[in-house]
Nucleic acid binder design. Structure first.
Lengths: 244, 244
DNA sequence: GGCAAAGCAAGAGCAATGCTCTCGTTTGTG
DNA sequence: CACAAACGAGAGCATTGCTCTTGCTTTGCC
């Protein structure tokens, strides 16, 4: 049958492709991206190393596939954290998503390094990675959007220097949010990964002990930064105004 | 003479060691740490690759030397930025140091990646790197210390959850600063490298255009976070209270 | 149905890597 | 002066990413 005609080969192809990615992900999780070896993957799968090139034209292409998967995995974790905190208000959701992202990073350090660590030299992420990378960021945009439509956000003052850039970013990322909020959100997003990266990459060794408390504190501050909490007044979502 | 007896070999050794590091740093700057090849270094220096192992027992040891140098280089850049901004008040110095660190990172992306990017798997930084790594951090501690002894710092509230950890960190890092300030400083430090890392590693591509303005904005916010600017009142060092 | 074309797997091979071992040679020390 | 330590060079090993060629199987078209 033609469906199987389009199927036997095609299905085998996606199955083998999946098996390769699975084994590659296993090696990635165990040894890190640098140690990921095409030959070792092929060996483990019982096939010739040259056969692997039918599925991924180069090692970088395999890496790209893993990068996309990692972004999606992170995005899914962020979404799950958001959904699990549906009824605790915007600040609670923000906190939950941040902790979800952190939890994912701590649980998948090598995959985290793959997407937020040192990029491989000479490698520029193909455009296919962009939507995957956006997935987790969209979660916090959504939270801010909801908060803005609901109780409202603290709109921070916007310096003349930053205003044009903030307007541009808002138009690109979230036209329904105030430019000042968008600018602070982008900054907070980057800063969040500073906190997480320091923890995952060991920069907090011998410095921060109680990482949970420390992270919660910093995330609370970021919620403030981003406009989810009003500066000197009551909480917008059931939390103190000036965290820790 | 015994001095030259201790010298000819010894001097040659440190000269060759320096030459190796120099060439290695050149390759690092051009191609990145992953592409750094012992054989290529030896080739460029006109020596056999095996001879190189007399100076660095392994590739990781060469990397470690480069890591220390990179930390020192960054620390020197931070100190220079601080010294160049001696008379602009604490907030100005904070801003200058942050921009100095960022400038160094943008100017030495591969060395930045070496120290703040993905750590090489299975590699744990030997203790010799710790003081070098601390050098840049000490600069901001010094700024906060000066500000605290001078005009004073805004002492943020400290949650019960974080207090013990903050006290511990303060005892370790800066016993003369309020624990709440120390905790926020550590967080701000990590967040700073989130901003810088996103820019250096290309995460801001297609998102942030005017990086200078954006960075200045975020750094101003961090100055606020860290207590250099009082929440709702006048500046402590010649700058507006609520930046951008 | 039959048959050319395309997809596929395997092996050999190439250039390169980190690292080890061995063998002379140079250098410093008792 | 003699001996041990440091040194440089070469050969070699195991491994890597990737290419090329050689056969075999599946697919799609006439």
């Amino acid at each position: 049958m033609t469906s199987s005609a389009h199927g036997v080969r095609a299905r085998a192809r996606i199955e083998v492709t999946a098996a390769i990615k699975e084994e590659a992900r296993r090696q990635l999780a165990k040894e890190g991206a640098v140690k990921l070896s095409l030959r070792a993957v092929a060996r483990e799968l019982g096939m010739a190393s040259s056969a692997l090139y039918r599925y991924f034209p180069s090692r970088d292409d395999l890496l790209t596939a893993l990068i996309i998967d990692a972004y999606e995995s992170l995005g899914a974790a962020a979404e799950a954290a958001r959904d699990a905190a549906a009824d605790v208000g915007p600040v609670g959701r923000w906190t939950a998503v941040c902790e979800g992202v952190r939890g994912w990073a701590l649980g998948h350090p090598h995959e985290y390094a793959l997407i937020y660590g040192t990029p491989v030299p000479g490698y520029t992420a193909p455009d296919t990675t962009v939507p995957a990378a956006a997935r987790s960021a969209l979660v916090v945009i959504g939270i801010l959007r909801d908060a803005h439509r609901g109780l409202g956000l603290a709109e921070p003052p916007l310096s003349a220097e930053l205003r044009p850039e903030a307007v541009r970013m808002a138009a690109d990322l979230a036209p329904d949010l105030p430019p000042g909020v968008v600018a602070r959100m982008v900054a907070a997003w980057a800063q969040l990964f500073g906190l997480i990266g320091f923890e995952v990459f060991g920069q907090f060794n011998r410095v921060v002990e109680d990482r949970d408390a420390f992270f919660r504190h910093a995330v609370g501050r970021l919620a403030h930064t981003v406009g989810l909490v009003y500066p000197q007044q009551g909480p917008a979502g059931g939390r103190a105004a000036e965290p820790s």
